[in-house]
Design a protein around this nucleic acid. Structure first.
Lengths: 236, 236
DNA sequence: GTCTATAGGCTGATAGAC
DNA sequence: GTCTATCAGCCTATAGAC
């Protein structure tokens, strides 16, 4: 699946042809397509639109990526693999479960505000499509995020730091809150600035804290009155 | 906005032409289109597919609804107006805030499992689209749901039954969890039955309880040690 | 009301010049 | 590498027969 052209271009040798910069063309198409796919979905965007926004002609989409579908898949794969890698790394750490959960929320927030601002909309669209007609290749990525969060929650239930919640339900409510917030942020900002007088939207970092607090309190194990003093905590 | 043909058909007079049942055609198209739009989005569905699934020809979409876009808008409007009406009714009731929140979760769950199983996916797709090119008419419906939940939460913060949470953040995390769960249910069930051995997915009613419990605990006002005994509760 | 037939536009992909 | 020109196919909408 790895595109050899991508690898060759990583080195960026001196251009051998008269063209200004093939690498810039590729990146421009990726950027343009990412923005448009995230905003309108695969079917809502035409190759001509992607090319126009990138300032090139649509023939180059086929030349560089092998068609619209493969361009889409390239974007999904590179985006999701980075997210999944970091989430799994977090789940594998040996830190206390409540801290892992807080870190998970912060990680999603950080990805969504800095490096991969389009991933929440893309991920939401993918689960909505259900991996049916388009890109069944992305399903494993979604499953791996689920698996990572589930392991964290199961661990917490087992060691008594969390009350006996369903791990999958917990994952769904958590990831649902986060994806929804970040995927709809452009929409909410548009509404806020169109209002009269324009409203101020609160920064995403504050939402991250809101969710962290919500699940910390919502998942915490019950403390039976004075067990804390009697038994000296939940774990040996 | 009200379609006069719909109103006329409500009475269902004896068919004046030789056609079997125009009402059935209309309903068939509505059903077919609702399922397809929810699953693949406006751009992912062609008029021919809608017509085929309904067992008629695509010319009837223009005849009965005036085109694909107006059919889409009809579905959005009728679906959302019912949801919004019930949510606003709930917000206007004078019951205790924690109970109102539990009821809100139950209401969304009930709608999503019985009367309007496609509304979560449709609503999610609409907020993803951001009311841009398609159907700006649905934006007010989304705002009214937001407003209703916000009023409930603001009330609870004021009367001390909830800790001082941000009402909009609370709405976003709550509605995000719910829409995500129900909109992705078909996908999860498909995955579960494709697994080897097939997995059993837990019923939606249990997720409703999970979210109810999560927010009840996550939003509850702090009880400062023994205030309950000293002051006799939060409200006069 | 419902059909068939068709108009006219847009889509994704590619051949070939440079 | 990038462009222009062009293809066949699908799309929505509608005219007209029944």
């Amino acid at each position: 699946m790895v595109n050899t052209r991508t690898l060759r271009r990583r080195a960026r040798p001196a251009p051998s042809t008269r063209s200004r910069d093939a690498h810039a063309t590729r990146e421009g198409l990726l950027t343009s397509a990412t923005e448009l796919f995230a905003a309108r979905g695969f079917d809502g965007v035409s190759v001509a639109q992607i090319a126009q926004r990138a300032g090139v002609t649509k023939a180059l989409v086929s030349y560089h990526f092998g068609g619209k579908q493969k361009l889409y898949l390239t974007i999904m794969t590179t985006t999701f693999s980075e997210i999944v890698e970091r989430v799994e790394q977090l789940a594998a750490s040996s830190r206390p479960v409540p801290e892992q959960l807080r870190e998970f929320v912060a990680l999603v927030g950080e990805m969504a505000t800095t490096r991969r601002p389009h991933f929440p909309a893309m991920m939401l669209r993918e689960v909505l499509a259900g991996g049916t007609h388009l890109a069944p290749e992305v399903v494993p990525y979604l499953m791996r995020v689920l698996g990572a969060v589930r392991r964290i929650v199961e661990h917490g239930v087992r060691d008594g730091t969390l009350r006996p919640v369903d791990p999958i339900f917990t994952h769904l409510s958590l990831i649902g809150s986060l994806l929804f917030f970040f995927a709809t942020q452009p929409f909410r900002e548009r509404l806020a600035s169109a209002a009269d007088p324009p409203l101020r939207t609160r920064p995403a970092a504050e939402y991250v804290r809101h969710v962290q607090e919500l699940i910390a309190r919502g998942l915490a194990a019950d403390v039976p009155a004075s067990t804390t003093l009697r038994a000296g905590g939940a774990r040996p």
